[in-house]
Design a protein around this nucleic acid. Structure first.
Lengths: 108, 108
DNA sequence: CACTTTACTCTATCTGTCAAAGTATTTTTG
DNA sequence: CAAAAATACTTTGACAGATAGAGTAAAGTG
C-alpha cells in the first residue's frame, strides 16, 4: 500500500482527472481510486472530503446534491473550466516531477 | 521550479542517494540538488537540516565535524548500513509511485 | 574593511493527512 | 422482519513535514 506522502501534491490532479471523465460523488471516487490503483492506494475518507473542500474553494470543482437511492445521500462534483486548466497544469507538473526525481533515483 | 509537495515523500531517498555516493555536507547537497535538477528544484535550507535531523534520529545517517576552510564550519553526513537498506526501499517506493500515479494521470 | 559567500541553527507557522467518532439512509441476510 | 452490513457524508483535533525569517559565525573578495 502506497503511503499518502508519496502521492501528496499529485492528489488534486488525480481527483480532477477522475472528475474530468464524468461527474462523480465522494464514495465512488474512493472506490475507483482503490480499484484502478490495483488496491495499491486507498485514499482516506477524511482526506478526500478535505480535498473536495479545497478544490471547491478554489473554484476548480462545483457540487450538487444527488439522489438517495443507494444509502446515504450523494453529493456530486463537477469539474469547472478553471479546474480543467488546473488539471492540465498538474499533468505537466507530474511529468516534470518524474524527470527530476529520476535524475536522482535512477531506474537502474 | 518544482514545489516541495510534489517531491515530498521522496526527499529522504534523494538525500540518501546523494550520501550513498560519498559523504557530503548540507550546503553542498543543497547546491548539488539545484544543479543536478537543472535548476528545477531548490531545497530550502530549513527543510534540508530538518531532513538531516530526522534521518540521524532514525540512524539512517551519521554526522561528524569537518574543517572550517571555506567559511562556516561544515558538518558532514555519512549514510549507514541501515540507511542503504532504507534507500533501496525508497527506490522501490518511487517505482511503485510512478506506476500508480501514471494509471490516473496518463502520459498520452 | 565593507561586502559577499559559505555554512549551519532555531523558532514559529502553515498545510495536508487522517484517526476517530458521529449521522443518516438503504440493502442484505439469517 | 429485525439485525447487520454497506452506502455516503461530516466534523474535530492532532500530527508530521516544509519553510519563512531571523540569527550566528567564519572565510574570501574587491
Amino acid at each position: 500500500m502506497i503511503s499518502s506522502d508519496l502521492i501528496r501534491g499529485h492528489l488534486d490532479a488525480i481527483i480532477l482527472k477522475l472528475l474530468s471523465e464524468k461527474d462523480r460523488y465522494g464514495y465512488e471516487i474512493s472506490k475507483e481510486i482503490f480499484a484502478r490503483s490495483q488496491e495499491q492506494f486507498q485514499i482516506k475518507e477524511a482526506t478526500l472530503y478535505a480535498v473536495f473542500q479545497r478544490l471547491e474553494k478554489k473554484e476548480l470543482i462545483e457540487s450538487y446534491s444527488g439522489n438517495v437511492s443507494h444509502g446515504g445521500k450523494r453529493r456530486y462534483y463537477r469539474i469547472t473550466k478553471l479546474g480543467r486548466a488546473y488539471l492540465l497544469q498538474g499533468i505537466e507538473e507530474w511529468k516534470l516531477t518524474k524527470r527530476v526525481i529520476d535524475i536522482f533515483i535512477a531506474e537502474a
